[in-house]
C-alpha cells in the first residue's frame, strides 16, 4: 500500500528521532549556557582567537573578527559542530534505507511482499528526510531555550536561517550514504564507502577553504559541505542558489540509488 513504508518507518523510528533530537537540542542549550552574557562571550572569543588557523577553519572561522557578535559566535561554535553531527546522522540513516536490513537478512522478507524496490527506497528516504528535519527542529528548540537563559540579544531570524540551510546539506549527505548502501548492499562495505566519501568531502571543504589557490581549494566545490557556510548565512542570509544545488544533487543521488538497487541481486 502506498505510503505504508513511509509511515511505518516514522512510527518505528520515533525513539531514534527523539534521541538524536534531544542530543542535538542539549548541545544547543549547553552552547548558550556557556555564554550567559557579552562579557563571557568576549573572554571565550579571545581564547578561540588564539587557536591555530586550521582549528579555526574547522570551526568555520575565516576571520577572527567574525567571532565578535553572538550570532557569528554561534555560527562558528555551534553550527560548525552541528555539521559534523548531522553528517554522522546522515550516514546512519542513509544506510538504514536498505543496507542495514539487507545485511541483517530482513530485506528478503520485505521484498517478498507486494512492494516495488523503488517504492521501498523512496518512501524510506522521504521518512528519513523528515526525521532529519525533525532533528534539526529539535536543535533549534534547544538553542532557542538556551537563549532564553542568557542576557544576549541575537538576531533569531538568522539563527533560523542557519537551521534551514542545514537541511539541504543533511539531505544530500543522506542521499550519498543511501547511494553507497544501494551500490554495495552489505553494511560494512557501504558504511566504509559512505563514511569515506563524507569525511573526504568535509576535509576537502574545510582544508580547501583555508588554502586559496591550492588543489584542495579547486576540489572544494565538489564537496556538499562547500554549500553550507554558517558564517556567510549569518552575515548575508540564506543562499537559495546553493540550497537549490544541494537539493538537485540529492534528487539525482536518490534516483541513482533507486536505479542501482532495482538492478542488482539482493542479499548475496
Amino acid at each position: 500500500m502506498t505510503g505504508s513504508i513511509f509511515w511505518l518507518t516514522l512510527r518505528h523510528r520515533w525513539r531514534f528521532t527523539l534521541l538524536w533530537g534531544i542530543g542535538l537540542a542539549l548541545i544547543g542549550w549547553v552552547t548558550m549556557a556557556a555564554i550567559p552574557n557579552m562579557e563571557s562571550l568576549t573572554r571565550l572569543t579571545e581564547a578561540i582567537a588564539n587557536m591555530p588557523p586550521v582549528m579555526l577553519q574547522m570551526l568555520g572561522v575565516d576571520d577572527v573578527s567574525q567571532l565578535a557578535g553572538p550570532e557569528s559566535f554561534l555560527a562558528s561554535a555551534y553550527f560548525a559542530r552541528a555539521i559534523i553531527l548531522m553528517a554522522v546522522f546522515a550516514v546512519v540513516v542513509g544506510l538504514a534505507v536498505s543496507s542495514d536490513e539487507e545485511s541483517e537478512g530482513i530485506l528478503d522478507v520485505v521484498l517478498s511482499w507486494p512492494l516495488p524496490r523503488w517504492q521501498l527506497q523512496l518512501e524510506r528516504f522521504l521518512a528519513f528526510a523528515l526525521i532529519g528535519v525533525i532533528v534539526v527542529a529539535f536543535s533549534w528548540i534547544g538553542l532557542w531555550v538556551g537563549l532564553r537563559g542568557t542576557e544576549l540579544v541575537i538576531n533569531e531570524a538568522r539563527m533560523v536561517d542557519n537551521f534551514i540551510g542545514l537541511v539541504p546539506l543533511t539531505l544530500a549527505l543522506i542521499a550519498i550514504a543511501m547511494l553507497c548502501g544501494a551500490a554495495f548492499g552489505r553494511r560494512a562495505l557501504a558504511l566504509g564507502a559512505a563514511s569515506g566519501v563524507v569525511m573526504a568531502g568535509y576535509i576537502v571543504s574545510f582544508l580547501g577553504g583555508s588554502t586559496e589557490g591550492s588543489f584542495l581549494n579547486t576540489l572544494s566545490p565538489l564537496s556538499p559541505f562547500h554549500y553550507y557556510n554558517p558564517n556567510a548565512i549569518t552575515r548575508e542570509g540564506l543562499n537559495y542558489g546553493e540550497m537549490g544545488l544541494l537539493l538537485v544533487v540529492t534528487v539525482v543521488l536518490v534516483g541513482l540509488s533507486v536505479w542501482l538497487f532495482q538492478r542488482r541481486d539482493v542479499g548475496v
Binding site: E104, G105, I106, D108, V109, S112, W113, P114, L115, P116
Partner: peptide, 16 residues
C-alpha cells in the same frame, strides 16, 4: 509485485 500479492514466503533463516 503482482505475483507477490499471491504468495506467502518463509525464508530458511528468518530475520526480522
Amino acid at each position: 509485485v503482482e505475483l507477490h500479492r499471491r504468495i506467502g514466503f518463509l525464508p530458511g533463516e528468518l530475520n526480522l
